[in-house]
Design a protein around this nucleic acid. Structure first.
Length: 390
DNA sequence: TCTGGGGTCCTAGGACCC
DNA sequence: TCTGGGGTCCTAGGACCC
């Protein structure tokens, strides 16, 4: 999808059309989450600090993000994809691989499928999408970058290397800042240059795994199949604060808040996790992580919170200023899988957790929570949903 | 310029086991 | 007395992606 968050916002507010618009926070530490093509003319890009984006484009319109909205539009986009083929591999909220090799009976060519998918997305959702068509995944990915905005790019079978080799090596999926710097040392600028580097030389520079992988890609080889519905491996919540947090007391409150969110998301996804993660970024941007594997799976906020307290202690943060705090859960397993019993957790906590889940589903996630996080003043009176009989 | 939030994958060392 | 080889699990950090 092209400038996905921005285009979704334009569906609700047509005054944003034709203007330089970004979606992102307005705080001093915010970054751009998505930029319209009008904003990109000024040099504004995703992940750029908002302060810089504003400087580059004084008339920039900033829209605060609404991830729930993007996620529900994303669901509709993906169901359009699945109406063409069951083999859909989501890459993010707005991007997917579709294996259309089985559609020969219904379409003349893969390019015809691309035209049809784009038209469906446009007709049903009024959103622009770009499609890259190619014989392998990474080639299709590069082709889709080439197709943007709102277009199609076809890389014909046999024409892969002609398309690939003139491109800058940084365009390759998997070559980030660090690998790019290492490749520059080898005098590599284009993907063609990379293809010419002997594999052993590449491996000694960037490591065996990355070296082998890049050597294959640069020569147009990518055997990876399109894999649908892979399981979630981790759930995490993190936040960068407008002002640094100082002191264990503040940190503990934030850990509780994050633990509640992580637990809620795990519960709603029907997942339990065994490993709890803590992430701390200090004022100087140095970032540390600590993790602890529990004796049994959990999705109870209290378990995650207590583990995060132990991890915080181990991190010896003391009174150092903290700009980011995060809590995560991994080693996930689904409801269906047999769970080990938690020996040190009375059943009442599971029951409480379940009751909270029911209440939150009905009244919203702010309706029930630990007293520590309440601000003492009731906000909105929670009201049942319209479709609720009670 | 001063750096978000949500993820995945990889590496490397150490503990532990047979 | 100083020492193998293979395997799994755990932890910390880093690269990369959108």
């Amino acid at each position: 999808m092209d400038a996905f968050f921005v285009e979704v916002e334009r569906l609700d507010d047509s005054t944003l059309i034709g203007k330089p618009v970004v979606v992102g926070g307005t705080g001093v530490r915010s970054v751009v989450a998505a930029a319209s093509y009008e904003a990109r003319v000024f040099g504004v890009r995703s992940a750029m600090p908002m302060t810089r984006a504003r400087r580059l484009c004084p008339d920039l319109v900033i829209v605060p993000p609404d991830h729930n909205k993007y996620s529900s539009v994303s669901t509709r986009v993906f169901s359009i994809f699945r109406s063409y083929t069951p083999t859909v591999e989501g890459l993010s909220v707005d991007e997917a691989f579709l294996d259309v090799s089985g559609l020969r009976m219904h379409f003349g060519s893969a390019a015809d499928v691309a035209v049809a998918v784009r038209r469906s997305v446009r007709d049903d959702l009024d959103l622009p999408a770009s499609v890259g068509v190619a014989t392998t995944k990474f080639m299709a990915k590069l082709a889709s970058e080439h197709a943007k905005p709102d277009g199609i790019h076809l890389v014909k079978a046999g024409g892969e290397l002609d398309f690939l080799h003139p491109l800058p090596v940084r365009a390759l999926w998997g070559v980030g800042q660090s690998t790019h710097a290492a490749l520059e040392q080898l005098g590599v600028e284009t993907i063609g240059d990379l293809a010419a580097v002997p594999e052993p030389a590449l491996r000694s520079r960037v490591g065996d795994s990355v070296g082998v992988h890049l050597h294959e890609l640069a020569n147009g080889r990518d055997p990876r199949p399109v894999l649908s519905d892979s399981e979630t491996k981790s759930i995490s919540v993190e936040q960068t604060y407008e002002a640094d947090l100082v002191g264990v007391e503040r940190l503990e409150i934030e850990l509780l808040r994050h633990s509640e969110k992580v637990a809620g998301r795990a519960r709603r996804a029907g997942l339990w996790g065994r490993t709890t993660h803590l992430k701390v970024r200090f004022a100087d941007f140095k970032t540390i992580t600590r993790s602890e594997t529990l004796p049994a799976q959990t999705n109870v906020a209290r378990d995650i919170y207590r583990a995060s307290l132990r991890l915080l202690e181990r991190a010896s943060v003391g009174s150092r200023p903290v700009r980011l705090l995060g809590v995560g859960l991994s080693s996930l397993m689904s409801e269906a899988q047999p769970r080990q019993l938690a020996v040190d957790r009375p059943a009442k906590w599971d029951e409480l957790s379940e009751a909270i889940a029911v209440a939150q589903d009905r009244f919203g996630s702010d309706a029930v929570g630990p007293a520590t996080l309440a601000d003492g003043r009731p906000k909105k009176r929670p009201r049942p949903r319209d479709d609720d009989a009670h």
